[in-house]
Design a protein around this nucleic acid. Sequence first.
DNA 1: TAATACCACGCATTATCGTGCAGTTTTTTG
DNA 2: CAAAAAACTGCACGATAATGCGTGGTATTA
Lengths: 255, 255
Amino acid sequence: MLTAERRQLILELLHKNKKVLSSELSADFKVSEDTIRRDLRELSEAGQLQRVHGGALLTSPTKASYADRQKQAPEEKKAIARTAAKLVRPGQVVILDGGTTTLQVARSLPLDLQATIVTNSPPIAMSLADHHHIDVVMLGGQLYKKALVNVGAGTVENLGMIRADLCLLGICSLHPDIGISVQNLDEAHIKRAMISRSVEVVGLATAAKLDTAASYVVGPIQALTYLVTASQVVPEALEAYKNIGLTVIRDEYVS
Amino acid sequence: MLTAERRQLILELLHKNKKVLSSELSADFKVSEDTIRRDLRELSEAGQLQRVHGGALLTSPTKASYADRQKQAPEEKKAIARTAAKLVRPGQVVILDGGTTTLQVARSLPLDLQATIVTNSPPIAMSLADHHHIDVVMLGGQLYKKALVNVGAGTVENLGMIRADLCLLGICSLHPDIGISVQNLDEAHIKRAMISRSVEVVGLATAAKLDTAASYVVGPIQALTYLVTASQVVPEALEAYKNIGLTVIRDEYVS
DNA sequence: TAATACCACGCATTATCGTGCAGTTTTTTG
DNA sequence: CAAAAAACTGCACGATAATGCGTGGTATTA
């Protein structure tokens, strides 16, 4: 039995039964579980299945990747989100960027807060549906499925009609010299437009995002008014940013 | 039973019944309540549900009301949706209205279908994120929370740039004399704009929507090219519509 | 207030997982 | 055709995840 052949059969079994178990596959194909695990890993990286403890499931890669990202340092994200949510004043018009951290911000907003939230993220818009005193303005555009945000020229154009008091920006990569950068050109355009339409800009960054850079530059560090991080970030790591003149807010989170 | 599998089932149960009890889940899945509690905790951290004493509830009142509406004649809606989904041809640009029936249409679309779907409904946009060959265009606007659709002048304006082959319209009320009507003026504007931007218009109506009327008129029956209903609608009820010249498609559903 | 049900936390147990390593097979290349 | 490179496989071993139980705390109800 060829490797590729076995993997093909694994996929067939998966589609037939909706799930496969490492132990069963190992018995079925008379190979070690290590081999099966390697198969599953390969197939998972190819986006063909969703690995779980004990085997694999047939699931939508998009939702899975989004759920995965939400699981990365969820406590840190929540802590940052709680702190950032406090920066929103009643009556303000706030631009809320897409992303898992900003989604937590939306969830952290007080239920009785009166404000207008502008966002290009369908999940964020939906999560705000309970906040009866919040007007939600959705920016349309082409759905960028990987991040579940709307992007494109139309989105930027719609932003042109907005004049916001505050912008809460999820930070993918932040570097003292390079500034704010992201992995996708469309997202870079959106974030840049969001920044330009807001009086104050708050960057939300988990520890892992600091001192990193990606391919597309949104703007310099100076574009940010505040940077919100979790307290698990070592103070020394923030020195470079403070020296540039950035106001850093470290939350109360203790790891 | 895999852990991830069990958690997925918990979510399904939750969406079906709007609540789950730790004790019941423990009995159903034959695992200890501790395990169930751990599941609920994890899912709650991921924002998928809200933990309460004794079990868990749906995250938000909005989702609950949305779940309520989805529970109204779900089989009929699914049958209609399946039939309507078959009307979409590869390569077409399709406007998909908001609503629980049209959400089922989105879910019924083949995973390998290549098309462009234009929608003003965040839930529909998100549900299409798995369809890798579908381009999703979101119409922005103000979020009308009750129906989770974007409305307003901006939405209508964005529609002005669209020229669609097909429009799938959820029907709230249909009457031979009065035509298509809805309970909300903003939605009426949107639906009217959607109709005007499409070559063909398909109305999706469950039995309960026929021969009813609401306050705001979208347009006459003649605005529709096709009307899709479930086979549980008695043929006589459709006579009036057929006489006007409407092509009625009755699906294969048997109650 | 007392009784009951529910919950959080720590611990031990078991199954599963990841990784480095060596032997084998397959593919590539000269 | 033969040597080199790459891929595949199984094993050992430490790490991680999942689960159930006991203890003690907390919410709910009478």
